[in-house]
Simulated scan of single mutants.
Amino acid sequence: MQDRLIFLIGAPRSGTTLLARMLGAHSQIYQRAEPHLITPIAHLGYYANVQKAPYDALNAEQAIKEIVADLPGGEADYLDALRAYTDTLYARLLALGPGKRFFLDKTPAYALVLPFLTKLYPRAHYVVLTRHPLAVLTSYVESFFDGDYQVAVNHNPILARYVPALARLLRERPVPLVHVRYEDLVRDPETNFRRICDHLGIPFEPQAIAYGEQGDAPKGLGDPTGVARHTRPVTESVDKWAAEIAADGERLQLVSRLIDTLDPADLETLGYPRAEIVAQLEAARGAPVPVKRAAPTRYALERKLLVALRRNIHRNRLGRLLKRVRFALDVVLRE
């Protein structure tokens, strides 16, 4: 099954849904929405554990490590067992796309378990998509936190998590891969999609670039806001992040502190040198902020409401009421 798997690796809001739509429009590739098959089994205790799981994670961690130590093949036997589980599911999913040669798994969270994934599937095909870190941050904040950078960063330090993980993969290259920058993909989709097809060993199909003309996107987890508005790659979002950040002094200070915490070598590896990022922010000072003309979607309105409700939720009257309601529901629904 390994040689029939394609893992599309990238941070959230980095364009992975766009590229997945293009790859999924290829005649030899079957695509589903984000399967999230790998992340749970990466946290069973041997490689990482889940501290808030409904069992004692420390006991589970000790037990599984003792079991693996006693297996004749050690860690290799354990990986074989985990792979038997995922292979079965991947094979059944691929069977849903008759005539397809590859199954495409585009789950951004896999970027955070890459040492495990590359051990589990060293012979799979890897496509790594990177995007300007501040474009990722801006898209993440606007899509999920109604423009509140501080709340977004407190909820998920997305740059601190994904930049080092992706840089390490690109530096160490434990598996064969092709690396594409989002900015290059949308500016010259033909050249960069051809590179990807060559890496996968499949013929270049130019019609796949117009992914929106090849059918609807898979239903499920994934980009809820952006890629569905277009039928092929566009460049409108490449540079607008700089003006949005530079237009607000507090926002600019926050983002500058975030950049200072990132290793310059990691940024260089991803293709976005720190000096270049600083220069872009300086050049954007005083630039007009892009106007958001699109009518708000139901999803955007729901996110706006949730962000507003979450502010000070643990210290205000609503939060105290919800905690009492949750406690009562836990008692009523307890099995």
Rank of each mutant, 00 (worst) to 15 (best):
197 C>D: 12
175 V>E: 08
208 A>D: 10
177 L>I: 11
188 D>V: 04
201 G>V: 10
192 N>W: 11
171 R>Y: 08
217 A>H: 11
170 L>F: 05
227 V>W: 06
203 P>F: 01
194 R>T: 14
202 I>D: 09
185 L>P: 01
205 E>Q: 15
169 L>D: 03
174 P>A: 08
170 L>N: 02
191 T>G: 03
192 N>M: 08
188 D>I: 04
219 K>P: 12
174 P>S: 10
170 L>W: 03
207 Q>Y: 07
210 A>M: 04
173 R>Q: 15
190 E>R: 13
209 I>R: 08
194 R>P: 10
192 N>H: 15
195 R>N: 07
178 V>S: 06
213 E>Q: 14
191 T>K: 12
169 L>N: 01
187 R>N: 04
223 D>G: 07
175 V>T: 06
207 Q>N: 11
195 R>D: 03
183 E>G: 10
170 L>V: 00
196 I>V: 14
228 A>F: 15
193 F>M: 11
200 L>R: 02
194 R>A: 15
214 Q>D: 03
187 R>C: 08
206 P>N: 00
217 A>D: 03
207 Q>S: 10
214 Q>H: 05
212 G>E: 08
187 R>V: 05
190 E>K: 11
197 C>S: 15
214 Q>F: 02
186 V>I: 10
190 E>G: 09
189 P>H: 04
186 V>F: 01
222 G>P: 02
213 E>S: 12
189 P>F: 00
212 G>S: 05
173 R>W: 06
